[in-house]
């Protein structure tokens, strides 16, 4: 098995999960309480990666990151190298592609928190932000953990978007799933099978853990 690809995939998955905890929780918290009339629009955008072919999403991301787009040009001006076919670009793509896997379970868990508890906290003089960390988040913790685990597993095995945006550069963008594809193309079925089996085991374990967490009743 390609150790470099393994390390890269785990780094990518871990950073994607971390980024989605930071970015996804506020979005989820907003989705959980908002009664804005255009909210379905936001929900649809978040869910888009679930139904869009990875190649479509990857294509748009590639175009957006390329030197022809203002964003791509700004990136090159700021960091001196293009975003496309780099690890950073891969991470960005992975975060966007994994968005629904994090935000949807987060939002479901947060909207299950009894609004009375949040109100009780407010009447006790605790700010909205502090209430989120002291009441909503701890109570929604099982759902947030489940969402994170799911995101991690999903980012670990992602293939289509990675191929479109990242290509196949060892140590930079060559992830486990790309490595499997490579092995098969080279007719090295033994390596492909080892890597595939490994990913299968990881994914299975992750799902078992996720469902076990979901079954556990909320603390109380």
């Amino acid at each position: 098995m390609d150790a470099e690809a393994l390390r890269l995939s785990f780094t990518l998955a871990a950073l994607t999960t971390a980024a989605l905890l930071v970015l996804g929780l506020p979005v989820a918290a907003w989705l959980a309480v908002s009664r804005w009339r255009w909210k379905p629009l936001v929900e649809a955008v978040v869910a888009l990666p679930l139904v869009l072919p990875p190649t479509v999403l990857g294509f748009y991301l590639l175009v957006a990151m390329g030197p022809m787009s203002p964003f791509g040009r700004a990136w090159i001006a700021a960091f001196g190298r293009p975003l496309a076919f780099s690890f950073e670009g891969l991470l960005l793509a992975s975060v966007i592609y994994s968005l629904p896997f994090a935000v949807q379970p987060f939002a479901a868990a947060l909207s299950a928190v009894d609004p009375r508890l949040v109100e009780a906290s407010h009447t006790l003089g605790v700010s909205r932000l502090a209430t989120f960390f002291r009441v909503s988040l701890p109570i929604a913790a099982p759902g947030v953990v489940a969402g994170s685990v799911l995101t991690f597993a999903h980012a670990l095995g992602e293939f289509g978007v990675v191929l479109m945006v990242g290509g196949n550069i060892p140590g930079e963008t060559r992830t486990l799933s790309i490595a499997i594809f490579d092995s098969v193309e080279q007719l090295d079925y033994a390596t492909a099978s080892r890597t595939a089996l490994f990913l299968l085991a990881v994914s299975f374990t992750v799902l078992v853990v996720t469902y076990a967490l979901r079954r556990r009743p909320v603390l109380g």
Partner: peptide
């Protein structure tokens, strides 16, 4: 900032 204590019908104690 109103400093008004509120007792909810179902008490709304923090379960965690």
């Amino acid at each position: 900032r109103r400093r008004a204590g509120f007792l909810f019908q179902d008490f709304a104690l923090f379960p965690h």
